[in-house]
């Protein structure tokens, strides 16, 4: 899949896994698990989205797809009013901030 190709550079040998591969897998898994836990923590929270073109909006975070391309949010406060349900493109977003 494209996702796999993007994640695994061709320089990585495709056959037997050496100990350095295992170390890389362990680090990747730890980083990924922590990120997924971050998304779980963000679920249901009021989040500030800093977007390109100096756009700043607030919304309640619902979920993200696993490739982190789209963010599903509710009660999005746009400059033109509240949109009850919305999808934000991650490409439009620079940062998401929330309090725990």
């Amino acid at each position: 899949s494209p996702r796999f190709l993007a994640l695994c550079p061709t320089s990585v040998p495709s056959s037997s896994s050496s100990s350095s591969d295992e170390e890389e897998q362990r680090l990747r898994a730890e980083l990924r698990e922590r990120f997924l836990r971050t998304l779980l923590l963000m679920t249901g929270k009021r989040v500030r989205f800093d977007m390109h073109e100096h756009v700043r909006v607030h919304a309640r975070f619902g979920a993200s797809d696993i490739d982190v391309l789209n963010l599903q949010v509710s009660d999005l406060e746009t400059p033109l009013g509240v949109q009850r349900e919305a999808l934000l493109r991650c490409q439009d977003v620079i940062a998401c901030s929330f309090e725990v």
Binding site: F35, T38, C90
Partner: peptide, 17 residues
């Protein structure tokens, strides 16, 4: 992005995005 800066402690970097 547009020269914005954010400071804090790194919890993780997502290996996918």
């Amino acid at each position: 992005g547009d020269q914005q800066r954010f400071e804090g402690r790194v919890f993780t970097v997502d290996p996918v995005s």
